[in-house]
């Protein structure tokens, strides 16, 4: 479903701030695969997701989604294939618009926007039904402005928007990192339910090793702009945090298991 082929990306090339963020990155995701991504700060996790989403062009390599080469497509055109949830709860929704209006915008992802009504009565009923899966009571607040919602509610809504129209690929960029533990667990639960229901191909970045092990059916670890650990199937199910740390030191060639990886 997703193929990343030998992608390179360097920021601020030619300046003192030069930073090679992706180095010969390769990844192949099968349809329906739920892959968690871990790695220290600066390993290139978010850069990889942004490269797939087309936030900026990559320097080299190819990105193929569902068989189509999207390397040259701008961000708004790639959106037709993607569902995205960001780390910052403020980024994924339009705060001055109503919950139902946000959902209606998401329902039209990948379609041209015409002079037809932005939302229909039938849609309203459908959205109320869909919001129930989040278990946050948002189905009774369809016309509330999203700016009034808490960070957790906004993140859950963004998740629903990202998956309202089945995306070819769901990109979750530490979408629970800014939430308190209880809310984060709730949003993760909803993530599992939605991904499972529609069998969505998913890439989920997390800072939390336990989450990375507990969720999804494949786990990759990034270091220095490429993938150094890739486990799936039975092997992943039996994985422990200790083993993961050992794998990391082995792959990165350093035995100082990055403290930042140990988070919680």
């Amino acid at each position: 479903m997703l193929e990343i082929k030998n992608v390179y990306k360097t920021f601020n090339a030619g300046t003192v701030n030069e930073k090679t963020a992706l180095q010969n990155l390769c990844l192949h995701l099968n349809p329906g695969e739920f892959c968690t991504v871990i790695g220290g700060n600066g390993a290139g996790k978010s850069t990889m997701l942004n490269a797939v989403a087309g936030v900026w062009p990559v320097d080299e390599g190819q990105i193929i989604i569902g068989g189509e080469d999207v390397t040259k497509l701008p961000e708004y055109k790639r959106a037709a294939y993607l569902g995205r949830v960001f780390q910052d709860p403020m980024m994924g929704t339009a705060p001055t618009m109503q919950i139902e209006e946000n959902l209606a915008l998401a329902a039209r992802r990948g379609k041209s926007r015409t002079l037809r009504a932005s939302i229909t009565r039938a849609e309203r009923e459908e959205y109320a039904e869909r919001l129930k899966i989040l278990d946050l009571g948002l189905e009774d607040r369809l016309t509330s402005k999203v700016g009034l919602l808490s960070g957790g509610q906004r993140q859950a809504l963004t998740l629903l928007m990202a998956t309202l129209k089945q995306p070819k690929l769901l990109l979750l960029d530490e979408h629970t990192a800014a939430l308190d533990p209880k809310t984060a667990a709730k949003v993760l639960d909803a993530t599992d339910r939605i991904v499972e229901k529609d069998r969505l191909t998913t890439l989920m970045i997390t800072h939390n090793m336990r989450d990375a092990i507990a969720h999804g059916d494949r786990l990759i670890m990034m270091y220095n702009g490429h993938i150094v650990v890739d486990v799936s199937g039975e092997e992943k199910k039996r994985l422990t945090v200790e083993q993961l740390l050992a794998l990391f030191s082995q792959a990165s060639g350093s035995d100082e298991a990055d403290d930042k990886l140990l988070l919680s």
Partner: peptide, 10 residues
């Protein structure tokens, strides 16, 4: 309202 969101929604 939010350019980021708008682009992510195509």
């Amino acid at each position: 309202s939010n350019q980021n969101m708008a682009r992510a929604q195509g």
